[in-house]
């Protein structure tokens, strides 16, 4: 009988795990707080941390969760919520930072 779902051998998982651990260590080293501000890219810090997190998440998704081998619809219904997350953040960030507030001592910006 044909297999139900795609089979991935554990050696793949261990390799992915190793990469994930490595990336975690990198994230920690590159954080200004841990390195005592030796490594500090200013505003870009958060982007670096989030980018590495995104790579880690992609590895978990694609290999641990088999997303690389699933059909197109599951991919669609994964991308949709992520798009909404981005939309939500964008929606809030076109509001608060761009407010023209008559009473500056009250507002957030």
């Amino acid at each position: 009988m044909a297999e139900l779902g795609h089979v991935i051998h554990p050696r793949v998982f261990w390799k992915v795990f190793a990469v994930l651990v490595f990336l975690t260590i990198i994230t920690v080293i590159l954080s200004p707080r841990v390195s005592g501000h030796i490594v500090d890219f200013g505003k870009v810090n958060i982007l670096i941390a989030l980018s590495i997190a995104t790579i880690k998440a992609s590895l978990v998704l694609m290999y641990f969760m088999h997303l690389k081998f699933e059909g197109p619809w599951i991919l669609v219904y994964f991308i949709l919520p992520v798009s909404l997350l981005i939309l939500m953040i964008a929606g809030v960030f076109i509001d608060n930072p761009l407010r023209i507030d008559p009473s500056p001592e009250v507002n957030l910006s």
Binding site: G91, L98, I100
Partner: peptide
């Protein structure tokens, strides 16, 4: 969604 919030105090761009 924010068409429910025009008068709430959002930014003009929103």
């Amino acid at each position: 969604w924010a068409h429910h919030m025009y008068t709430a105090g959002m930014s003009p761009f929103s």
